[in-house]
Structures are given as C-alpha cells and as structure tokens.
C-alpha cells in the first residue's frame, strides 16, 4: 500500500473520461464487472454487461457492496441422504475473476474489516474465494455527504485502504492511483496516460477540501474502554427508545457480517445455506429455553454499538464502523449513530 495517496509516478496515471468506456470494455472481456448502476430511484452495485450502464456521478450506493463477497443468501453445500449414507456437494469456486468498479472508499475500507473477521484462525473459504479473485477499484469522494463521517472513523473520503486502484475525479478525467500490485497492473491498460505535476497538485487540493468539508464526530478517546464502563448506564434506554428493531442499519452496513445457517430441505435432500442475520432481531439471541438475553431494543442496539466501538477495536484493532452514513440516512426513525457515539462520549455515568 502506498500511504497518503497521490504518490509519485508511475504509481498514478490519468484516465480521461472519454477513454473510460474502452477500459471497461477490456475489463469486461476478462472479468465479471460490478459497478454502480441506476435501478429506479436508487443506485446499486450490480454486475454490468456494458460500460454504458455505469453511473459514476453518484453519492453512494443504497446497499453496501459487501454482498458481492458475502451474499445475502449463500449455498454452502447440497446434501442427499440415502440408506444411512450422506452425499455432500460443495459448490465450485469462482471460474472467472472479478472487479468491483467505482465503489466508495468507505466501502472498500469496510472490506478490510471483513477480511479480519472472516480471516484469522478460521478462514472463511466462501468469502476469501470471492475476495481473492476480485479487484477493487474505488472512486474517491470529492463532495462527501452531510451524513458521511469516514474521516472520524479512521478512513477518509479519498482513503486508498481496501482498494487496488483509487480514482479521483479531476473533471475531464480521473487520477488513478495504484494501491496494490494488482492495481498497478491495471494501469498498464492503454486507456491510461501519464500523470503530470499539475494533475497531482489538483488532486491534492481536492483531497484536502473534501476532508475539510467533513464534520467530525465527537468521540471520546479510548471509547472502547469507556463503553465497557457505561454498559449499564440508563442512557442506553433513552438513546434507543425510538428504535423500531428492524434490520436496516445492519443489512445496509458495509461491515456488519452476522449470519445464520439454515437447511432448506425437501425430503432427504437439501441445501445448507448461509443468510444474513441481524443483532437487531429478537430471534438473534432467542434461546430454546425461551430466555432472551437481549430482550429489548435497548440491549440489541447496545450490542451493535458495543460491537462496533468496543469489541472490534479490542479484538481486531479496527473500529467496526467506516462512517458510510447509510444507517444515518436510512433509519426510519433517524436514530443517528453519530449522536449515539457523541452522547456516550459525553461521559454519562462513566
């Protein structure tokens, strides 16, 4: 990784906008390409078949791109039992390599957390099969949304973390910065041309302005320890009283990864699938005895905050939030995670 971004040539090149389609054409010849597309009123990251489908003038996709690596519904294996014998079929891995094009830096950075959690001692083969064969080309944010707070979460609107290649819009073209060797290899494509000092200077300015435009989230130092101390504080009840207990915040989140395993069976054969689950659902912790250790929205929402701002920083040395702002904009009752963190940082009961 090249820290700080916008390093010296040849790590960065220019991709003129009129040459973008030809670059995408060549990507499509070799890879499955996912990119932002318009679906009705919203932008989603979906597989594309032609460069014309791609929309790069967008704020952020409604759903995070995590489903490309960690699908909502993923078959783990098929099974068949016959006369006491069990046959198991594991689906084959990727046949074609892929590229995720034009996602935002917060979402690319979110993948690093998934890497940590799904990697480690028990490496998730389904996730890493997709992750290993997928290049990430992200598009820096020159105008972050008022709901964005990536900078406060350790990333930034132009952060290269998690990307192989980072694009920055210079109006008539993109400055493309290689972040990994695989990203550098993409720069070999004839669509790219040499960058010049002027472009690098403009990029630097855009990056600085973008960062300055973001409102910081007031967050206590050592929040992870502080949260442990306020675990039983009555403030949690006040903070979460309006929560409807739906799964929007977790399902749209680029770093929430909790899942459930189920069998979809008919007779003696079936499929074991992995599906997304949400800590906001009562069923998530409902025990067979009837006991639910997280009986109300208070305990469930607290779990989400503790996980992201205390447990993950302790176990993975990374916050479980990349500040994409989806939960902020999409929560039906505007339960704003930034205000929650701020309020908890205020030292109530700490």
């Amino acid at each position: 990784m090249i820290p700080g971004g916008y390093g010296l040539p040849p790590s960065s090149k220019i991709l003129k906008k009129d040459r973008l389609p030809s670059f995408l054409e060549r990507l499509l010849e070799e890879r499955i390409v996912f990119a932002p597309v318009r679906r009705g009123e919203v932008i989603l990251i979906r597989e594309i078949h032609a460069p014309s489908e791609v929309v790069l003038e967008y704020e952020n996709a409604k759903e995070s791109p995590k489903s490309i690596f960690f699908p909502e519904r993923e078959p783990l294996f098929r099974y068949r039992t016959e006369k006491g014998k069990v046959e198991v079929d594991i689906p084959p891995g990727r046949e074609r390599s892929r590229v995720v094009f034009g996602i935002r830096p917060c979402d690319a950075r979110g993948l690093l957390l998934l890497d940590k959690v799904l990697g480690g001692e028990y490496r998730d083969p389904y996730y890493f099969d997709k992750r290993a064969e997928t290049l990430v080309v992200s598009l820096a944010c020159d105008h972050p949304n008022p709901s964005c707070f990536c900078l406060s979460m350790g990333g930034g609107p132009c952060s290269p973390e998690g990307s192989d290649l980072l694009l920055l819009d210079l109006s008539d073209g993109y400055l493309a910065e290689a972040v990994s060797e695989r990203g550098a290899a993409l720069l070999e494509d004839p669509a790219f041309e040499k960058s010049d000092e002027e472009s690098l200077a403009v990029a630097k300015k855009i990056k600085r302005e973008s960062e300055v435009s973001m409102k910081p989230v007031a967050m206590k130092e050592n929040l992870e320890e502080h949260l442990e101390r306020v675990f039983d504080d009555p403030v949690w009840k006040d903070l979460t009283e309006t929560c409807l207990g739906c799964g929007i915040c977790t399902y749209l989140c680029p770093t929430c990864y909790c899942f459930d395993l189920c069998d979809e069976a008919a007779g003696s054969s079936g499929e074991r699938i992995r599906v997304w689950d949400s800590c906001q659902f009562p069923l998530f912790t409902q025990q067979a005895s009837g006991l639910n250790p997280r009986p109300t929205a208070k305990e469930r929402f607290r779990q989400r905050i503790m996980h992201k701002f205390s447990y993950l920083p302790k176990s993975q040395a990374m916050l479980g939030c990349v500040g994409c702002g989806r939960c902020v904009t999409e929560c039906p009752v505007n339960l704003d995670i930034r205000e929650v963190v701020k309020s908890l940082s205020g030292g109530n009961g700490g």
Binding site: C246, G247, I248, S278, F281
Partner: peptide
C-alpha cells in the same frame, strides 16, 4: 426486498 422487516416493524 432485503428482508430487513422495516415495513413490518414500522
């Protein structure tokens, strides 16, 4: 639909 059940819960 992503099965978030926001419709039901709202």
């Amino acid at each position: 639909c992503i099965r978030c059940y926001a419709c039901r819960n709202a």
